[in-house]
Computed example of a mutant assay.
Amino acid sequence: MDWPESPFALPDHASGSETMADAAREIVAAGRRMDRLGFLPATAGNLSRRLSSDRFAITRSGGHKGFLTEADVIEVGLDGQAVRAGDRPSAETLLHCQIYEHEPEAQAILHGHSLAATVLSRFVRDTIVLEGYEVQKVFAGQTTHTAAIRVPVFDNDQDIPRLARNVAPLLNDMPAGYVIRGHGVYVWGPNMKSAMARMEGLEFLLACTLHERSLAR
């Protein structure tokens, strides 16, 4: 699978990746796209792709995701531990583990730190409501712009197991993913292209909501 000419293109891998190399290529492509869209400043964010029922590929700790190479993607188990000695996954790997364990259909997870998500989440209590936007139909199960989609907002916490426990009760009702306050968003999908579409959809809607609020002041 060659690297696509467009910086915004993703490898055409519609279903689960069969090899670590496939997953790494998808993650590298996704990282470059998210960086170009402004979702991954500095060394922020992490991206993953399921490999099997008990393993997935994820970006290693640190490093700019816009300059990823396949060597920057490592393999971990659902316990969050690296398969290869010496590899260091992000502390937030446990949040990926949680989603993969809870959502059998999830094949890719994206976590970014956009300006809109970071700022807007600092000014809401526990939920961002999206309603009236056509783009809402990018999310699983959504067929109309008239539906109200609730996006949970969780307080940021350096204690990742505790943060995961706070997220757990609402995982059954997150068609658009969730937001960590002052931090960023988590979205997932049945393949990398779907996850990316949901990431872009959510980020667009968060930016719209933030802009609407600024106009209403």
Results as ranks from 00 to 15, higher is better:
S214R: 11
G182L: 01
L95Y: 04
N166I: 02
R181S: 07
M196Q: 07
L47S: 06
T59S: 06
G189F: 06
G182P: 01
F123Y: 15
I180N: 02
R50W: 08
G80Q: 04
L94G: 06
H13D: 11
E70T: 12
I27R: 00
F154H: 07
W3R: 15
D2A: 13
G189T: 01
P190W: 04
E18H: 14
A14P: 10
H113E: 04
E134P: 03
A207F: 05
T146E: 14
L10I: 02
M20T: 12
R55G: 05
T144N: 11
Q98L: 12
H64W: 05
E70Y: 02
A106N: 07
T143E: 14
D157W: 03
R125N: 15
L95C: 03
R32L: 10
L110P: 02
T146I: 10
R165H: 05
I149V: 15
A82V: 08
T146K: 13
I128S: 00
A197L: 06
S214Y: 14
R33N: 09
L210F: 03
A207W: 04
A116H: 01
N172G: 14
A164Q: 09
A108I: 00
L215S: 08
L210V: 02
N191I: 00
S121W: 06
D12S: 07
T43C: 13
V135T: 15
D35P: 01
V151H: 03
H113K: 06
G182D: 09
W3G: 14
D126H: 14
G31Y: 00
H211K: 15
A176R: 00
R165K: 15
L171W: 05
V28C: 10
M20Q: 12
T69C: 08
M192S: 08
I128H: 03
Q98P: 02
D72K: 05
N191F: 03
P190S: 14
W188D: 00
H183Y: 06
A106P: 01
A195T: 02
H13Y: 12
P41D: 12
L115G: 05
R32M: 11
H183E: 10
A168H: 13
M196C: 04
E70C: 12
T146D: 11
W3V: 15
F56C: 03
E105L: 07
R217F: 13
L51R: 06
G184S: 05
K137L: 12
N46P: 05
M196H: 04
V83L: 14
L115A: 13
T127S: 14
V135F: 06
S214V: 11
R213M: 07
M196S: 04
N172W: 08
S61G: 07
T118I: 01
P175T: 11
L10C: 06
A23M: 06
D173C: 12
V187K: 00
G62K: 09
I27H: 01
T144P: 05
N46Y: 01
R217Y: 12
A216F: 07
Q107E: 05
L110W: 00
A42W: 10
R49C: 09
G38H: 00
N156R: 12
P11I: 03
S194T: 08
I180Q: 02
C97D: 04
E70M: 07
K65W: 00
D54N: 11
S6D: 07
S6G: 11
L94W: 02
D159N: 11
M192H: 03
R162A: 14
T144D: 09
H64S: 15
P190A: 11
I58N: 06
P11E: 01
T144G: 10
G80L: 08
A147N: 10
